[in-house]
Design a protein around this nucleic acid. Structure first.
Lengths: 155, 155
DNA sequence: ATCCATGCAAACCCTTTGCAGTCCA
DNA sequence: TGGACTGCAAAGGGTTTGCATGGAT
């Protein structure tokens, strides 16, 4: 069971060990008017414990004591509050992952399933301009990058 | 009903009127060993008649005389042979569209549902480089651009 | 004559919903 | 205490599959 998470030193969006992540997210949810419940904490804890993008089904399996509907509702709440982001694999399988601050795109490894963030690649501006050239006003986009991560290349 | 399609003068991938499109695609499928059947032609014809990205369900409705399984199987075959491409809307709804030669990205209008191709935007190279900088080898990607098309902007 | 293709219906997967009971604020 | 949350089970939608029949090569 992977419960420990790397300790970052940044102060913009501290990512402390699992228990603290739960407290942090619960606190934010409470600020929004949601309640602090045991099942909710269990869901958040399980989400934080995942080392790879996971499916809703996997989360349900990891939480045999929590109702499947509760897991789905909790996951949806986390997505809606931007605590968790959705990831789309090449075969259109939907997976989830704890949100990183400011991330927008993912480098998804088809070998090990790992996900890395692709930041500041400038793709958005490029797209917006290209779209504008066609008279199109870009208001959003979906971008996932598939391939092999550092550790899986040349395996 | 939009049955006529613009006649291109290029010889690389001529896009003639509907009936010819069907013949063209059927011919390619036959080359691959698939059979020339009436239901198959009906599916292709219906696909070619769509003026906007469509759902499998819409195609089924447009083909009341063709079994739903046959429509799905035909659609899948067309996607696998690159005759038709899949489009993903913001709400993750899956739609389809006749493939244009060399296109890869779509400008999808959330107002009228139209789709325009975004070519030569250089996003792929940019992504590949950005990914490579992280030691990631890009082998594919998913990119959809959402917004408002020329005709719907400022409505 | 073969074997692919079709059609129907049922199965399937994944997610949401209805409802009664439970628990936080 | 009241309204939000939970759990179960059932419904939902979108797509696939099993199987017997039909049709192309």
């Amino acid at each position: 069971m992977v419960v420990t998470t790397p300790k970052h030193s940044g102060h913009e969006h501290p990512r402390p060990r699992s228990a603290a992540v739960v407290d942090d997210i619960i606190a934010q949810l409470c600020d929004l008017g949601y309640r602090d419940t045991e099942p909710r904490r269990l869901v958040i804890s399980a989400v934080a414990a995942q080392s790879r993008p996971f499916t809703a089904e996997e989360l349900c399996s990891a939480l045999p004591c929590v109702g499947r509907a509760t897991v789905y509702r909790g996951l949806r709440l986390l997505v809606e509050t931007d605590q968790v982001c959705r990831i789309l694999l090449e075969d259109h399988e939907l997976r989830y992952q704890l949100s990183q601050p400011g991330h927008h795109h993912h480098l998804l490894c088809g070998v090990c399933g790992a996900s890395a963030d692709l930041e500041g690649c400038g793709a958005e501006d490029l797209l917006r301009e290209a779209a504008a050239a066609a008279g199109f006003r870009m208001k959003g986009h979906l971008l996932e990058v598939y391939g092999e991560c550092v550790e899986c290349v040349e395996d």
